[in-house]
Nucleic acid binder design. Structure first.
Length: 776
RNA sequence: GCCCGAGUGGCGGAAUUGGUAUACGCGUUCGACUUAAAAUCGAAUGGUGAAAACCAUAUGGGUUCAAGUCCCAUCUCGGGCACCA
């Protein structure tokens, strides 16, 4: 082989890896471990996109980096397969989601293998595989047993035309986004996980995580803990009203109460004069979506006709209903203190209510301490077919019963009509035989809701430790060795998924199934890759870059991977630049050229075609190197690349390698220089690096640097005059220790002398920076 | 509205503790090789200027021997939260 032919090399090494399975991991007690994973993908029909490649390659660079340091590394892979796209496709085409999923997974697997990832393919998991979701159901039952999976009536958007529940985002101007009919709020019984039980721990443990501050802040805001008090206000002829406030000290200024429209007391507070107006207000308010309520911040409201007694001032204060008070937060009722609260002031001004600048009271005499959270319990019911069946059945009275664990999995029945039925229940309600189940001799009807997909992904990281286990969800011993996960990489789900896995972890730790309380040590949150025009890639805009095209155009996977690491800081969004891909190809070509003799050859058919290097090795070897000459740059590049990878500065690590290669072309490369290059290159371009190492007869063990080689005999000292660069001196490392001598040398410099005629006020010598500043 | 980031050549971006601003790559220009083109190799490339030099890290101030980096104010962009009492 004489020229760099990436596709040929890559096929060769991928075959070798397929056969020899070097990435298979097993527990090795006593050997330090490292476990890494990306957020597993939803395998869409479109296949891998460049965003996946960035995400997976970050994991792969770290995986290979640690593997080359001879840690015991586990890098598994899986697919998050339940979800709406496959179901919608089924409704449209009649193709079973099972089938579509199977095809898509095969495609994803094939494409991931083309990228040369160091994946332990033996641990592949798939959330819609009954062998997997059986244990998702088991997890549900554990939560159910402890009362953390429960049913509750709650208001949902309901379209009477489509007979289905709608998400808040699917309601526009009070109308259904599909058919345009007016939607209603309907009380429905839904399943929830009681994540609020862990609110305090989820919040308190955030600070210790090695996660991006951005994500940590988002989770803190989401949990939204406020410490305050609940205070009772007596109401003549009706039940007392309890309000929540974080400012009980302002109670002397509370001049009216406000209830949320949904507050249960509202209907008992109205009188004949106010009833009509209040109920109409309530009706209108409930029709508004949360989004609409947020958009229009103009205060609205209506007087109930009732009064309460302020326990501090003993005065009679009116009770209003207004939608700026949220039903779901605190008690759904507030004491309004217009003197201290901007929103209350706005309302008071509009309705001409008294604003009293009362004194603050020192302590909370009137209420009881209370902590509230913005976070709500996690609604997990989905009226869909393509999800994990909730392992519950109902008796004749409608009471829920758990499916016994030995009857798991509750299999998804194969059906042909995926359309939800008339009542808005999932298509499962039409599987009449499946619905019937006998528990303890009693005939029951199965739950037709399926679980939110986030439930399936809340425990998959633990399944990776023993995905073949048929007796339990995970093997605690294997988990104890591998987990918690050392690195988790993704660019989505900042709150939802990353909060849910923390919640389940704490729960299963409490149950004794997990030996740790946080599932992910370090989180890397990568940015998006946008189209060359800087816009989001989308089919409709026709600006999508297909990674497989980049490979097949002749650049190969190594170029694609290295380019995506070089494109910019991993955590920032970046725009694809087709021409820069060519630059990375050129770099890899130069690496190749240093090791293999080469000649010009055919070029890739890509938009920025590049051919293989000519005479490069000859050029490099012409001035045969003295090994010593390169020792410093060799140790420097080892240090740079190693430290950059530890800091996730993948872009500058690649830049360092480019610089090193440029240097080797100038000075000529020795055997050792090339071995180091190949080893450092391997995390980014594993196929090419493997080929180089094979040729050089070297292993891939990560090289070490020695600080003593980083010091050269002479150093350059910068001379500034009044902070401006005026001269550079070459001095021996020895002389660098002699401040007086260095300063004399600087002052004697011709270029410096020009500026020192008027005398020198003082001189500053900074040894660390190798810099002198002369103040005149 | 509140909170958090960011703003550096023609472009993507470097600059790790306040110490040589613009690493690396793209693009552009010139040269070598070639009948020619591509590829490859080499050189140059912040601006003004013949040069010396001066001016440049969003804008305006400040601290310092020294500021892209620290402080104050302003502008712009991005992200998150958004009536949470």
């Amino acid at each position: 082989m004489e020229r760099y032919e990436p596709l040929k090399i890559e096929e060769k090494w991928q075959k070798i890896w397929e056969k020899e399975k070097p990435f298979r991991a097993e527990e090795k007690p006593g050997v330090p471990k490292m476990m890494l994973a990306e957020m597993f993908p939803y395998p869409s029909g479109a296949g891998l996109h460049v965003g996946h490649v960035r995400n997976f390659t970050i994991v792969d660079v770290l995986t290979r980096f640690f593997e080359q340091q001879r840690l015991n590394v586990l890098r598994p892979f899986g697919y998050d397969t339940f979800g709406l796209p496959a179901e919608n496709y089924a409704i449209k085409t009649g193709t079973a989601p099972q089938e579509v999923t199977k095809v898509n997974i095969e495609n994803f697997r094939k494409q991931a293998k083309k990228l040369g990832y160091a994946i332990d393919w033996n641990r592949e998991i798939n959330t819609s595989d009954p062998e997997y979701y059986r244990w998702t159901q088991w997890c549900f039952l554990q939560l159910y047993k402890k009362g953390l999976a429960y049913q509750k009536e709650s208001y949902q958007w309901w379209c009477p035309e489509d007979k289905t529940v709608l998400a808040n985002e699917q309601v526009e101007g009070g109308k259904c986004w599909r058919c345009g009919s007016e939607v209603e709020k309907k009380k429905m019984k839904q399943w929830f996980f009681k994540i609020t039980e862990y609110a305090d721990e989820l919040l308190d443990d955030i600070d210790a995580l090695e996660w991006p501050e951005k994500i940590k802040t988002m989770q803190k805001n989401w949990i939204g803990r406020s410490v305050g008090s609940e205070i009772e206000f007596k109401v003549a002829g009706a039940e007392d009203i309890t309000v929540f406030t974080t400012r009980p000290d302002t109670i002397f200024g509370a001049t009216f109460l406000v209830l949320a429209p949904e507050h249960p007391s509202v209907e008992f507070l109205v009188n004949d004069d106010t009833k009509e107006a209040v109920l109409e207000y309530k009706k209108q308010a409930m029709k508004k979506s949360e989004i609409e309520r947020q958009e229009n911040k103009e205060k609205t409201g209506v007087f109930t006709g009732a009064f309460a007694i302020n326990p501090a001032t003993k005065s009679k204060i009116p009770i209003y209903v207004a939608d700026y008070v949220l039903a779901g937060y605190g008690t759904g009722a507030i004491m309004a203190v217009p003197a201290y609260d901007e929103r209350d002031r706005e309302f008071a001004e509009k309705f001409d209510l008294p604003i009293v600048e009362a004194e603050l009271c020192d302590f909370d005499r009137f209420g009881t301490p209370k902590t509230t959270y913005k976070m709500r319990d996690w609604l997990i019911s989905r009226q869909r077919y393509w999800g994990c069946p909730i392992p519950i059945a109902y008796d004749k009275e409608g009471n829920p019963h758990p499916i016994p664990e030995d009857q798991l999995p509750v299999m998804l029945p194969e059906i042909s009509d995926y359309q939800p039925d008339e009542s808005g229940r999932s298509a499962l309600s039409k599987a009449k035989d499946w619905l019937k189940v006998t528990i303890d001799g009693e005939e029951m009807t199965r739950e037709t809701d399926t679980l939110d997909g986030y439930a399936c992904s809340s425990w998959y990281l633990w399944r990776y430790a023993s995905p073949w286990d048929t007796k339990q969800a995970w093997d605690k011993e294997a988990i104890s060795y591998w987990e918690p996960l050392d690195y988790y990489v993704g660019g989505d789900h900042a709150v939802a998924h990353l909060l849910y896995i923390r919640f389940w972890c704490k729960f299963f730790a409490d149950m004794g199934y997990l030996p740790f309380r946080e599932p992910v040590k370090r989180l890397l949150y990568n940015g998006y890759i946008n189209a060359p025009d800087g816009k989001k890639m989308s089919k409709s805009k026709g600006n999508v870059i297909d990674p497989l095209d980049v490979i097949n155009d002749g650049y190969g996977a190594d170029t694609l991977r290295t380019y995506e690491m070089f494109i910019g800081p991993y955590d920032q969004d970046a725009a694809w630049d087709t021409r820069s891909v060519g630059g990375v190809y050129r770099f890899l070509n130069r690496c190749w050229g240093l090791v293999f003799s080469s000649c010009s050859g055919p070029r890739p058919a890509g938009p920025s075609p590049r051919a293989a290097g000519a005479n490069s090795r000859a050029a490099a070897l012409r001035n045969a190197p003295s090994q010593d000459k390169n020792t410093t740059i060799r140790h420097k590049v080892i240090k740079k690349v190693t430290e950059d990878i530890y800091r996730y500065n993948f872009n500058t690590a690649v830049a360092g390698l480019m610089e090193y290669v440029n240097e080797l072309y100038k000075t000529g490369a020795g055997e050792e220089d090339l071995v180091v290059l190949a080893k450092l290159l391997k995390p980014f371009a594993p196929h090419l690096a493997s080929e180089m190492l094979e040729k050089l007869g070297a292993d891939d063990e990560w090289p070490k640097w020695d600080e003593k080689y980083l010091v050269s005999e002479t150093v350059e000292v910068v001379v500034q005059v009044n902070g401006k660069l005026r001269a550079k001196l070459m001095v021996s490392t020895e002389d660098l220790e002699d401040e007086d001598k260095i300063i004399d040398l600087a002052l004697a410099d011709e270029k410096v002398k020009k500026y020192t005629d008027g005398g020198v006020k003082k001189t500053i010598f900074v040894k660390r920076a190798k810099l002198i500043n002369i103040v005149v």
